[in-house]
């Protein structure tokens, strides 16, 4: 069997999850922490593949951008973990999670799916719909 995109993504998942395992065993929290945006991005990329193992270029770019923004917010929260700064009544690192990451995960992530589905993935299920209708 030749190597396809899914194989490459599963390899990436394997690397990240191995890092998580090492991080959990040896109490290296950064390995677990940065695995979160990494795995979310990889799984979104996997979920945007159609059944012919193809990506829509625009969708891939948006998913990677979402992952990059999420990773950047994780970096900001990490960098301010021990700072004395307070934002909206919360320590800065906590405020990043409560005021930015929480709304981002609740709204932007699902909106990204809606866009990818509308412009790309729905074509993958249209023939199933037609097949079902003829039965």
């Amino acid at each position: 069997m030749s190597i396809d995109r899914t194989d490459a993504l599963v390899a990436a998942i394997f690397v990240v999850v191995t890092g998580v395992t090492v991080g959990v065993v040896f109490d290296v929290w950064h390995l677990v922490y940065y695995a979160i945006p990494s795995l979310v991005t990889v799984f979104m990329l996997m979920g945007s593949l159609n059944r012919r193992d193809e990506w829509k270029p625009g969708a891939t770019a948006r998913i990677v951008s979402f992952g990059a923004v999420l990773t950047m917010l994780f970096v900001v929260s990490n960098a301010t973990l021990h700072s004395s700064g307070v934002i909206g009544g919360l320590p800065a690192s906590t405020a990043v999670f409560v005021y930015v990451i929480w709304p981002l995960t609740s709204v932007v992530g699902p909106l990204l799916f809606a866009w990818v589905y509308h412009t790309w993935l729905r074509h993958d299920v249209d023939d199933a719909e037609a097949h079902s209708a003829t039965q």
Partner: peptide
């Protein structure tokens, strides 16, 4: 809790169209 909404986005990405088919 704060990151759990991402789980719904991931579920729809990974499972939605494939399970529907």
């Amino acid at each position: 809790a704060f990151l759990v909404p991402l789980a719904f986005a991931l579920s729809w990405f990974l499972l939605g169209s494939r399970l529907y088919r």
